[in-house]
């Protein structure tokens, strides 16, 4: 390949070859150093990653949010259960009041009916019933 035919902004073949050669040397040198160094030493020399710390912090926050969320949910459910129980008791009370009122109305109607005067044609029969009752 010739370096003359390259588009503007592209490296020449010579530059590319030099760069690739240097890149190869760089990787080889890094690899040899890393391989010759004991692993324990390498780990001790490496600063702890901020990402690891951030991950622990994030994990802690998530756990706290999750815990407080579940506590709130539990508390909320207990409140709802209390409200539902109160509503049910109130409804039972109202129903009992309505039943008592209906009974009172029926009794009033019955009392009214039996307090009516006996028709004239029925008076002899009513006298007989009274007499029978007195005996």
């Amino acid at each position: 390949m010739s370096s003359n035919g390259k588009a503007a902004g592209e490296a020449t073949d010579r530059e590319l070859e030099e760069a690739l050669g240097s890149f190869r040397q760089c990787v080889h040198a890094w690899s040899e150093t890393a391989l010759s160094r004991p692993r324990a030493e390498a780990q001790a020399a490496r600063p702890r990653s901020w990402r690891l710390a951030a991950a622990w912090v994030l994990g802690g926050v998530l756990a706290a949010v999750s815990l407080s969320g579940s506590l709130y949910e539990r508390h909320h459910r207990q409140d709802l259960a209390r409200i539902a129980a109160a509503q049910a008791a109130r409804q039972r009370q109202l129903a009992a009041q309505e039943r008592a009122q209906a009974d009172r109305n029926l009794l009033t109607t019955v009392n009214y009916d039996i307090s009516q005067a006996v028709p004239q044609a029925m008076e002899p029969l009513a006298d007989l019933m009274d007499a029978g009752a007195n005996q």
Partner: peptide, 27 residues
């Protein structure tokens, strides 16, 4: 950081800087 591993070899300071810059672009 990866480019810093380039050995200086027989390059002078300027050549070494240039070579390191090239290696950085390859990375």
């Amino acid at each position: 950081e990866a480019s810093e591993w380039l050995p200086s070899g027989e390059r002078n300071a300027e050549q070494q800087l240039l070579a390191r810059e090239q290696v950085k672009h390859v990375w």
